[in-house]
């Protein structure tokens, strides 16, 4: 029923796309994190303008599908002469950077909310105690708030990492040859979608399994007090 010989042949070719997929994931998570922290801080700041900006950003990128965001950034922005004449064009010209930009903005909005939740979960007593011990400013953040917030936010962040790995499949719609892009090209030559997509699905499954294990290990490492004695 299934053409196993084809699956065996397709496997190494599709696996070769893993590098591109992982680069996209790593890039998006990194840029997304740098977007997320200011977003979280702005969302809880006293300035109405900052709060409004953060809320608008989070609302747009969490309220619309990633596919729309990718197309808006790639095909939508490329439509305007003004954009093509601007200094951003060398970046927006490349599908790779457009995909990275869309994924980063998307994960930045979700991660922003996760970071905010983490910060809010830091018990007031801990902060008061630190202040009483003479800590303030950056030291307070570095020693008390950040470690506790990170620990609290990690389970939710693990979910975000996994969904980012899955989301990179959409980059194939703007000509990027990651796992799904290579799979679709393979299908257009062999006309056997089920076999090829099963192979691609298995690769994603393994990637996500390892990512989840890695993050779980990190979680355990950061929560020594919860380990069984």
């Amino acid at each position: 029923m299934l053409d196993f010989a084809l699956m065996a042949e397709a496997f190494p070719a599709i696996l070769a796309g893993t590098g591109t997929t992982l680069k996209l994931v790593a890039g998006a998570l990194l840029c997304g994190f740098f977007l997320a922290v200011p977003t979280a801080l702005a969302a809880d700041s006293r300035s109405r303008i900052l709060r409004g900006t953060a809320a608008g950003y989070v609302l747009f990128f969490r309220g619309t599908p990633l596919l729309v965001q990718i197309f808006l950034i790639y095909y939508g922005l490329g439509q305007f002469e003004a954009v093509r004449a601007s200094i951003f064009w060398p970046i927006l010209r490349e599908p790779w950077w457009c995909a990275l930009l869309a994924l980063s903005l998307n994960t930045g909005a979700y991660t922003g909310e996760i970071v905010r939740g983490g910060l809010q979960s830091v018990p007031a007593g801990q902060i008061e105690a630190a202040r009483a011990a003479g800590m303030s400013g950056l030291l307070l953040y570095r020693r008390i708030i950040a470690p506790i917030a990170l620990r609290q936010a990690l389970p939710a962040y693990s979910n975000e990492v996994v969904s980012m790995i899955k989301a990179t499949a959409l980059a194939s719609t703007i000509t990027i040859m990651e796992i799904t892009g290579i799979a679709r090209t393979f299908i257009s030559q062999t006309f056997k979608p089920i076999e090829i997509f099963l192979v691609a699905g298995a690769i994603y499954l393994v990637l996500n399994f390892f990512a989840a294990q890695l993050l779980r290990a990190l979680e355990r490492h950061l929560s020594p007090h919860r380990r069984p004695i």
């Binding site: 899955k166 499949a169 959409l170 799904t180 099963l198 699905g201 994603y204 996500n208 399994f209």
Partner: peptide, 15 residues
């Protein structure tokens, strides 16, 4: 949780 939804749609469409 491990397989992109795009692939699930394609698999169901063709299979």
């Amino acid at each position: 949780r491990g397989i992109p939804d795009l692939l699930i749609i394609y698999l169901l469409f063709f299979g």
